[in-house]
Design a protein around this nucleic acid. Structure first.
Lengths: 345, 345
DNA sequence: TATATTTATGGAAGCGCTTCCATCTGTTCA
DNA sequence: TGAACAGATGGAAGCGCTTCCATAAATATA
């Protein structure tokens, strides 16, 4: 039916070993033989059989990425980095988009099948402990992105430092009554971002006040959503009277900030004039809504994730590495800072 | 090293054929034997070898999706549909995100390798003619999504009808001077959307006027971008004086509409009071910007794409099918229609 | 010239499965 | 009682490669 290396060998008058060597750019093939074989390859429009290659070579040239759909813009950006790098290395990328942890586990298991993939990337979720041993046992390279585990290569964002930078920015603009709108403290990012907020306040000599932190866990994603942001803002504004009223808010994520903006608008509170806002993530919407926010270098994280994965494939031993990215402050209108127009993105 | 069916066979005291039959749920295995084998499978924590299975069975249980990154929100939505359906069928999805046609061709070629994938989905781009014959020759199932070719199963959106619906909506709101902001007529969607606009006008007895169509091709994507939308809006508003001034615009895409909104705001033109807008696509931003727009059922398109692909795998012969989705009008604020609040999404 | 060394080549073995065919056992029915 | 058949099972062949080993040819070395 289809052309195999046996056909090539017969047609070119050489052995199958030679054909294989030609196809894989082995050095020990004479120039003439190589030319002859390649001519036949072209003439018969030979296509190697991927599965056979994989079985024989014990390499799949494939990696899988387990990534939550709900990360949305993060998803695309980081995937673009991953894909670009994968193409460069000639690897295929199996995408496992998931909506919950049990799906994620299913795909972790699947990725562990022998001869399936050469490496796995796990995004934005906590790695179930039961898989730690399995990956180590099979020695299947695993990289965690926007997540962390001491036993594996990880890439994460400095949430704490980012939050500190965000809060400092508000302080520098002269605000002293700064609230925070946060998501569930069950999540690590929420805890870290609150801690960063606290640190910035305290280094400015402003005491951290628990009643200045507004947390709503309604909706999905532990409160990292629009509705929760809106609810928190409404709660905040509901009691925002008197001399020490809040004039600025640090919000734990852009999506929450979007909801908060709606809530503020509804109640006639102008942003940034009445209330300055800085949030976190820099999703696409942030630009449109003119949110001042902390940008995560998503594309770069994708690229680095693959680089780590390949490095691990080459060198399976060696201590797990951790890289953290420092988010950068993107100044737009929501914080009320004066900005040169060319900086408006 | 790792456990193979030979190990299982030895351990269970049966032949490899029986083991294979057990693993594949073949009917002709006795209950006791099956139990015995499955016990060993569990005990040795056997994992089948994917490549070996593929080589022997001549099936990969994998499909590839070639999809432009720039489609952004469409990308995620449609992919979610694809992924959900793929999981249901137990298939893996190789993602080939591309930024241009030459990349797309590279991945088309790659997908054609024997034993690589069982089917291919090609999104939002014109299929290069040179690949038509290749896919037919290898009989590799191919489904086009948001694209069309007479020789392959296709799924597309009724751009013409959608544009007619959009324009009719503006007509119904009482507008008679309706302009259109379009992208390059080199693209089919742009042509279709203009034709739909024309039809709606003419059925209302309003002559189509070429000077009412504003096209900018600056930037990427044949003018389907923010900058081009903004430029067109500025051009439109620049000459929008006198008695028959334009009071409504149909814009060929949401991203262009986003730019157009910026341009209008800059020039002090209020939307919808001074100018009503209806656009096309319903990307995520559209909701936030309160754009009235024509929604494409993206998730459903993803699901259907996979269903078509599987149908084609089962039945390689049979005429190519074409399914077109009718976009639906999502009414938000930009068109100026009164809307019950609960309908505001 | 004889020997060692390098370069090029052929093809068997092996990767871990699926599947087919042959065989064996037990059951059914006249 | 024996023929006919269905149900289980073992294992060889085959999927299409890579790789290793043996060998042949060409070249260098003494």
């Amino acid at each position: 039916m289809s052309v195999t290396i046996y056909d090539l060998a017969r047609e070119a008058g050489v052995g199958i070993g030679t054909v294989s060597r030609c196809l894989n750019n082995h050095p020990s093939v004479s120039v003439e033989t190589r030319a002859k074989v390649l001519e036949v390859v072209k003439r018969l429009s030979y296509q190697p059989h991927a599965s056979a290659q994989r079985l024989a070579s014990k390499k799949t040239n494939t990696i899988s990425a387990i990534i939550p759909f709900f990360t949305n813009y993060f998803f695309i950006q980081v995937l673009q980095g991953v894909q670009d790098k994968a193409a460069e290395f000639g690897f295929d990328l199996i995408l496992y988009g998931v909506n919950n942890t049990s799906q994620a586990e299913y795909y972790l298991r699947r990725s562990l099948h022998r001869g399936h993939v050469d490496g796995v990337m796990f995004f934005s979720m906590k790695l179930p402990e039961s898989y730690v041993a399995k990956f180590q046992q099979i020695r299947l390279p695993l990289v965690l992105v926007d997540a962390y585990h001491p036993e594996f290569d990880s890439i994460s964002v400095k949430n704490l430092e980012g939050a500190t930078m965000a809060t400092r920015h508000l302080l520098k603009l002269g605000h002293t009554n700064i609230a925070m709108i946060n998501a569930s403290l069950a999540t690590e990012p929420a805890r870290d971002r609150m801690e960063g907020y606290r640190i910035a306040l305290e280094e400015a000599g402003i005491p951290f006040r628990n009643d200045r932190v507004f947390i709503s866990e309604i909706g999905k994603q532990d409160g990292f959503n629009r509705e929760a942001g809106r609810a928190s803002m409404e709660e905040l504004l509901g009691k925002n009277t008197g001399r020490d009223r809040v004039t600025a808010v640090f919000i734990a994520s852009d999506v929450q900030a979007m909801g908060a903006l709606e809530g503020a608008a509804e109640l006639g509170v102008r942003v940034p004039d009445d209330l300055a806002i800085v949030s976190f993530d820099d999703i696409e919407l942030a630009q449109h809504a003119q949110l001042t926010t902390m940008r995560q270098p998503m594309y770069e994280m994708g690229v680095l994730a693959l680089e780590k994965l390949f490095a691990r494939m080459k060198n399976p031993d060696g201590a797990p590495s951790l890289t953290t990215f420092l988010p950068s402050l993107i100044i737009r209108r929501s914080c009320g800072a004066r900005i040169p127009t060319e900086q408006l993105v």
